[in-house]
Amino acid sequence: MSQHAHLLLQLTRMLARQELRGAPLSMRLCTAYVRLARAERGAISLGSLGDERALLCATDEPAARYEDAQDLAGEGPTLQALRTGAVASVDSSEAHASTWPRLSGLSPQHPAHVHALPMRPDGVVVGVVTVHFEAAGMLDEEQESLHFLGDAVGAACLGQASYDDDSRGLWSERDRVAQATGAIVAQLRVGPADAAAILRAHAFASDASVHEVARRVVSGELDFSRDPYGGTQ
């Protein structure tokens, strides 16, 4: 199984965990991302490249306060990533203070190791996922995995996975998506919103339309109660 497929399978199973049920979908996605990234805390913001952002969720109060401090300071990793479309990160308190001095002054308890990654499920920035780590240093393959996982979470949040324009308005296609969503609900015992998010994330990851993934689910070709990638569990 490829690393990307493994990450997506882990994300799917994380959303299905009983301990995360009851929270808003955005919070479950954020919590799942933070855990899979082996980070301490995190937050998801929505917004387009160079535009204002809206904080969607944060895993805890320190993460929320850090995001609020960025708005007050007018600078910080989340804002920088959204303005530039590039990853914004630092790996020490000194680097944090020199890169974002106003933010460091407003947030003396700032994380020393923070990474803000633009979410681009369709090649267009739709938001930023920001994570705080306890230790510095990250391998190139770990950064690449975080990029992929962030894009998958963006697709799950916003439904940015590609659709076939010619079939978007066909009732048969809509019915198939509804059937597939119901099948995922039954397979994983999750709510409809979670099932739809999983459908979108898998469509993004497989570079397919939501309708195509729905067809595979309805036909039984794709079953999330088993390993959908055919690997070992």
Rank of each mutant, 00 (worst) to 15 (best):
V34E: 05
R189P: 00
L149W: 00
R176W: 11
E67V: 14
S89C: 10
A86M: 05
L170H: 01
I184R: 13
A201S: 15
L9P: 08
S98H: 12
S92L: 03
S26P: 05
H132A: 14
Q70S: 01
D207C: 08
A178P: 10
L9C: 03
A197K: 08
V218L: 13
S2F: 15
T232V: 08
G230Y: 01
A195Y: 01
D164G: 02
H110Y: 06
E142D: 15
A135I: 04
G159P: 13
A205R: 15
M1S: 02
G105M: 00
T12L: 00
E144M: 07
E134F: 09
E19V: 07
L139Q: 08
L9K: 14
T99H: 13
D71T: 09
A73P: 14
D51M: 07
L170W: 01
G231M: 12
H202Y: 15
Q18A: 11
H202R: 15
V125R: 12
L139M: 05
A180D: 06
G231N: 12
V213K: 14
E67R: 09
Y33T: 14
E221Y: 01
R216Q: 09
A205M: 09
M27E: 06
A214Y: 09
Q3V: 02
A197C: 03
A186K: 11
E212F: 14
R17M: 11
G137S: 13
L36H: 08
M27P: 01
R200A: 05
S89I: 01
G191C: 05
A180L: 15
E144L: 09
E142A: 13
D164S: 03
A208W: 05
T99V: 02
A112Y: 00
Q70R: 00
S45K: 01
C30E: 15
L79P: 01
L8H: 00
E141K: 03
G127N: 06
V218F: 08
R176H: 10
G159H: 10
W100T: 13
Q160E: 02
A54C: 12
M138Q: 07
G74N: 08
S145E: 11
A54Y: 11
A43Y: 07
A193D: 03
L25F: 04
S107M: 13
G159N: 05
Q187A: 03
A16L: 09
P24M: 02
A186G: 06
S104E: 11
G182L: 00
F148L: 10
H132G: 12
G220N: 13
R216S: 15
F204P: 15
A183T: 02
R226F: 01
G230M: 01
S104I: 04
L117Q: 03
A112K: 12
G230K: 02
L7P: 00
T84H: 11
V129Q: 03
G123D: 14
H115P: 06
A135F: 11
R21L: 00
Y66A: 14
T130C: 13
H211D: 15
L106H: 00
Q80R: 10
E134N: 07
G74T: 04
R21F: 02
G137N: 09
L79F: 04
L56K: 13
R189S: 02
R215M: 07
H147L: 10
S167A: 04
A58Q: 09
A214C: 07
R168S: 11
S26N: 11
S206E: 15
H132Q: 02
R168P: 00
G182H: 06
E221V: 09
D60E: 06
G191Y: 08
M1G: 01
D223G: 05
F133I: 10
G154H: 04
